[in-house]
Simulated scan of single mutants.
Amino acid sequence: MMAYVLSVMAAVGVVATAAVVFRVARKGTDDRHADGPSAGHAGAMLSALFLLVFAIAIIVPWTTADSARQNTHTESRAAVDAYWAAADLPADSLAQVRGGLQEYVAFVVEDEWPVMAQGRLDPSGSARLDTLRAQVSALKPATENEQEAKGAVLDHLAAVSAARAQRAADAAATPPDGLLLLTVLTGLIVVVFPFLAGARPRGASLLPLGAMAAMLGFGVYLTADISHAFAGPLAVGPEAFGGALQEFARIAGGV
């Protein structure tokens, strides 16, 4: 934080030094007007800075949400593959393993998804998955086919576990520190800049300024509202896991 403060002070110091040097050297002319070159240059740069920060504040959560959505499909697909592979397990273990997979996916949809809006996963989900992997690992296959099925199920469960870990990272992901604060700060400066430059808008000239302020306010609120992958307008839903439950029912009905 101190580094940020020092960088701001250094930049302001450069401006102050340049102003003193040019005044002593008697270079240039006084600029006291709201529409002068100083105000015009500063206004353009502030607007560009706000647009840059705003773009980053939108793109980062959008990218995170898109990655999180793809990962839910990866995890649910791995669960379906494990369900398929379990068909060749010993008969007395088939129902147990498939039931465990169905319970895990149903838990994610019904119980865990609301918790992810708070930036975390339910620890009991990992416990369920670990229990299922332990059950499969403890199986004693009687044939080579059953041994291959056991290995395949464990591989798919490992993929589910890896995707779950990524889902936990996606749920906890937030924009870079200070980005939202910088978005708010630059937005406020852009709104009040005409007044800081010495302009005094009156009458009809306040209408476009008010419209700009309203749009900036909405944009700043939007950047905060989409900052989490599983909450807000860009929230990733459990559709992929719901599809997996339907696939489970179809496979069970056909096998």
Rank of each mutant, 00 (worst) to 15 (best):
V136P: 00
P194E: 10
S205I: 07
R128G: 05
A173T: 08
P123M: 06
F230E: 00
R120C: 00
P123E: 06
G217P: 02
V136C: 05
T223H: 03
R167K: 05
S161R: 15
L179Q: 06
V191A: 07
L180C: 10
P176V: 07
K150M: 10
P176S: 07
D225L: 03
A173Y: 03
A142H: 04
A168M: 13
E148P: 05
T143I: 12
G232R: 00
F218W: 02
S124T: 13
F230T: 00
A158R: 14
G210K: 07
L180A: 14
V153C: 09
A165T: 09
A173R: 04
A231P: 04
G151M: 15
R133K: 14
G219F: 02
L196K: 08
G151K: 15
E148T: 10
A211F: 14
L207K: 05
A134V: 04
V160P: 01
A169Y: 07
A211G: 10
A171G: 12
R128H: 14
L179M: 11
A127L: 12
T183G: 15
E146T: 10
S161Y: 12
P175N: 08
D170T: 06
T186A: 09
A127K: 13
R164S: 10
R133W: 09
A138T: 11
L181T: 06
R133L: 07
L207G: 01
T131I: 08
A231M: 11
A163N: 10
G232H: 00
V136E: 00
L207Q: 02
D170C: 10
L188E: 04
S161N: 14
K150Y: 05
R164I: 08
R164L: 10
F195E: 12
D122P: 03
L181W: 05
G119N: 00
G151W: 10
P208Y: 07
L182M: 12
R167A: 04
D170I: 04
H156R: 11
P208W: 06
V220I: 15
H156S: 07
T223P: 02
K140Y: 01
M215A: 11
V184C: 08
T174H: 05
F195H: 13
L181R: 06
A173D: 08
G125E: 03
